[in-house]
């Protein structure tokens, strides 16, 4: 043991410098050039003001915006979390049912069988920035009524903001809710 203590201390110090000082500094240096925002979370601006981070979801509850997914932490980006509710938990299932009921109140045009489950289940991070294209389209009738914009225009807007799967082949298509809502505010 004794003959190992000294090398252990010295090796620890050397590897600390290597992996906890030099390595992060190197990556930080790269970030200054190749990251979208010098290594910081990339912000989205509207009318010259930062209104959110491109990758981080935020709460939309008003009828004239596209809603994102339910969040277990109310989109608190300083304390991400999922609900961690189990699939058979009766309280959880009651909560989902109440979200369905509330969705139907705000979107009376939508038949219950068409409500996408992602609109009534909480995301993993509580900060999901995206919607599936179907979950965006299902809200068109409500927004069209509330903003007095023809539905066709809204469908077209969703189409423009839909990001295709990676290389057109891998993964799901998605729509960034913040970008979509900013574009919505800019319509007219």
């Amino acid at each position: 043991m004794k003959q190992d203590i000294l090398p252990a201390i010295r090796l620890t110090l050397v590897s600390l410098i290597l992996v906890s000082v030099l390595y992060p500094l190197l990556i930080w240096g790269f970030a200054q050039f190749i990251s979208p925002a010098q290594g910081k979370a990339q912000l989205v601006y509207h009318n010259g003001k930062a209104v959110g981070a491109a990758l981080v979801g935020q709460n939309f509850s008003k009828d004239h915006y596209f809603w994102g997914r339910p969040s277990a932490v109310d989109y608190n980006a300083a304390g991400s979390a999922g609900s961690n509710k189990g699939p058979s938990n009766p309280d959880y299932l009651a909560l989902v049912q109440s979200r369905i009921d509330s969705f139907l109140v705000h979107n009376p045009q939508v038949p219950q069988k068409d409500i996408p489950a992602e609109l009534v289940t909480a995301s993993g991070s509580g900060l999901d920035p995206d919607l599936s294209p179907a979950a965006a389209k299902i809200q068109v009738a409500r927004i069209s009524l509330s903003r007095n914009i023809p539905a066709d225009k809204l469908y077209q807007l969703i189409e423009e903001h839909t990001q295709k799967p990676l290389l057109g082949m891998f993964g799901p298509p998605k729509v960034n809710v913040l970008h979509l809502n900013i574009a919505l505010d800019q319509l007219k």
């Binding site: 989902v96 049912q97 069988k113 993993g124 920035p129 599936s132 799901p172």
Partner: peptide, 18 residues
């Protein structure tokens, strides 16, 4: 509950990952 679960069980999951 009679809703559309086409994307699978989405509680605790993210749209961009599926």
């Amino acid at each position: 509950m009679g809703i559309d679960q086409r994307l699978g069980s989405m509680e605790g999951k993210e749209i961009r990952l599926g």
